[in-house]
Simulated scan of single mutants.
Amino acid sequence: MRIIAGDWRGRKLVAPKGDATRPTADRTRETLFNMLASRLGTFEGLSVADLFAGSGALGLEALSRGAGHCLFVEQEKPALDAIRSNIDTFEARPRTTVSGASVMSLGPAKVPHDLLLLDPPYGTGAANVALDRMIRLGWVGAATLVAVETGATEDVEVRLLETVKERKVGKAKLTLLQLS
């Protein structure tokens, strides 16, 4: 796994040990960030939350492209170790916060994030449940773009969110959503 573009382009990422985490493939991540770039234009200064963060590849990709800050939320210890190692390798600590908790235990947001990146375990419906909660707790605002990776046959259906773009990439489906 490598960073696709930006300041850290080509630099390797550490993946969590064990099989509890499924890192997003480079090709899938590249497709996702092309979809995001066409909607956002630039990542400069964005506030990003990488939920179900795994290795932190999605949030680190956003930081590499200019995001101002990224919150990484992950509950598995091997994944947290990988995230912290990657953050240290890229000397990104000042622009990051790491939460070793379940996405479902997060409290209310002080302000909505500009971009939410979710890569929950496939086949669990966790994205729908988490997004419903994130909306109620103020994590999603009028200008927030939400990107979700699910299995290719899964749908993301959350009250108040509308799908703005969807694309299948191998065994994955990428869905971009915004408040309706």
Results as ranks from 00 to 15, higher is better:
Ala5Phe: 07
Trp8Ile: 04
Arg9Asp: 02
Arg11Asp: 05
Asp19Met: 10
Thr21Asp: 11
Thr24Val: 14
Thr24Phe: 06
Asp26Trp: 06
Asn34Lys: 02
Leu51Arg: 01
Gly54Pro: 07
Ala57Val: 05
Leu60Met: 12
Ala62Met: 05
Ala67Thr: 11
His69Trp: 12
Leu71Phe: 10
Ala79Ile: 06
Leu80Tyr: 03
Ala82Phe: 08
Arg84Glu: 15
Asn86Phe: 00
Asp88Thr: 13
Thr89Lys: 13
Phe90Glu: 10
Ala92Tyr: 01
Arg93Tyr: 05
Val98Arg: 01
Met104Asp: 05
Ser105Asn: 13
Gly107Met: 07
Pro108Ser: 13
Ala109Arg: 03
Ala109Gln: 01
Lys110Ile: 06
Val111Arg: 13
Leu117Trp: 04
Tyr122Phe: 15
Thr124Val: 11
Gly125Pro: 06
Ala126Lys: 01
Ala127Lys: 04
Leu131Thr: 05
Leu131Lys: 04
Met134Tyr: 12
Trp139Lys: 01
Val140Ile: 15
Gly141Cys: 08
Val146Pro: 03
Val146Gly: 01
Val148Leu: 06
Glu154Tyr: 04
Thr163Met: 11
Thr163Val: 15
Thr163Lys: 13
Thr163Pro: 02
Lys165Thr: 06
Gly170Val: 08
Gly170His: 05
Lys171Ile: 11
Lys173Gly: 10
Leu174Gly: 06
Leu174Val: 14
Leu177His: 10
Gln178Trp: 00
Ser180Trp: 03
